[in-house]
Design a protein around this nucleic acid. Structure first.
Lengths: 191, 191
DNA sequence: GTTAGCATGTAAGGAGTTACATGATTTT
DNA sequence: AAAATCATGTAACTCCTTACATGCTAAC
């Protein structure tokens, strides 16, 4: 049930979807992919991998194309169970499912799910943002007594950013619905 | 030296700058102010307040305007030591000082510091973002082999957002330098 | 041959959340 | 009088980061 810390699990399963990989590489790819927030450390990746091994979500694969002499790199592969788990995590709509990190990871691996789920995630994220927007703007109207200038500017910028993201999500939702080639540039004027 | 968890401390001191407040209210104000990221819980606020009491950064103040019958609300006030600490934290440029949360809090309390520090923080944040931008774009050129469509769209959106923030920061820096009234646009002449 | 980067791991600790526990006050 | 909200707190737990520990391989 989509606990907070399943983020790594989701990311690892998603990446391994592209093919077998070892820990070090997994970490690099991930940090590049989510380079704007926090960065993943070995201290959390390796234990997570072991845990996933034990849970039979991934298996070690003995170097297919590996030159023999290298330091024993442990290459992992998704198991069928892992795949199921991935699909389940992707489709789950727990309370934390729309938070920033979680959303980004889900989005990054959209290719590995179907449209139904993509739409659910996109729409869920959008409503969540719109709720926040409404709440903040409502509370601002009531509390507006004395607003510090800088604090106000921060608010304004925040609101603007969220509004931008809402528009972005709307475009993506339309693209999904219209069956367009996923995202990139919106072609003008289809419904 | 600006550890990660001084965030709450900074926020509390900054808010109490506006006048005495009790815990519950502190929390509400804070969550409104930083409503877009994580939300502060009692479980972290109250212990932090106690710790700050012990460190003599704040003191309990026995209800100035308080109607007597209410449940004993513990109202806090900044001490001179707390004020010094606040100023020190604000001006400190530790490795975590430019991360999202920390930056937002600092920015929100800009009114309580002087321009020199404001510029340092704004410029620091901007360079940090520009570095990230350069690094990511560099790595993208090298790794460009097969980029998944959705992953690429996420990247694009991320880059765009960061670029926007850089422009925002640049405007603010110019305003500070020019001695303009702080931010982008000014609500008619209050204060 | 020594530094830099690849590669895997562990132990300790920080920071904050959840859930629990309590009780007053205001609103319905 | 019940429900909501104000108000303060504690304990357990989760997740992650930091720092440490190790050793191989490539480049200079």
């Amino acid at each position: 049930m989509a606990r907070r810390g399943d983020t790594i699990e989701l990311a690892v399963l998603g990446l391994l979807h592209e093919g077998p990989m070892h820990g070090y590489e997994l970490r690099k790819r991930l940090n590049l992919m989510l380079g704007w927030g926090r960065v993943l450390s070995y201290g959390s990746l390796y234990p997570a991998l072991k845990k996933m091994l034990r849970a039979n979500l991934i298996t070690e694969v003995s170097a297919t194309t590996a030159p023999i002499s290298r330091r024993p790199r442990i290459v992992y592969e998704v198991t069928p169970a892992g795949n199921e788990h991935f699909q389940r995590l992707m489709s789950e709509v727990g309370p934390t499912a729309w938070e920033d990190d979680t959303f980004d990871i889900r989005f990054a691996f959209f290719s590995s799910t179907d449209m139904e789920i993509r739409l659910r995630v996109l729409e869920g994220r959008r409503s969540r943002l719109q709720e926040r927007l409404a709440r903040v703007q409502g509370e601002l109207e009531r509390t507006q007594a004395e607003v510090d200038r800088y604090a106000a500017e921060l608010q304004r910028h925040g609101v603007e950013s969220v509004e931008r993201e809402v528009r972005w999500l709307s475009d993506l939702i339309q693209a999904e619905r219209g069956g367009d080639d996923p995202p990139a540039h919106r072609t003008a004027g289809t419904t």
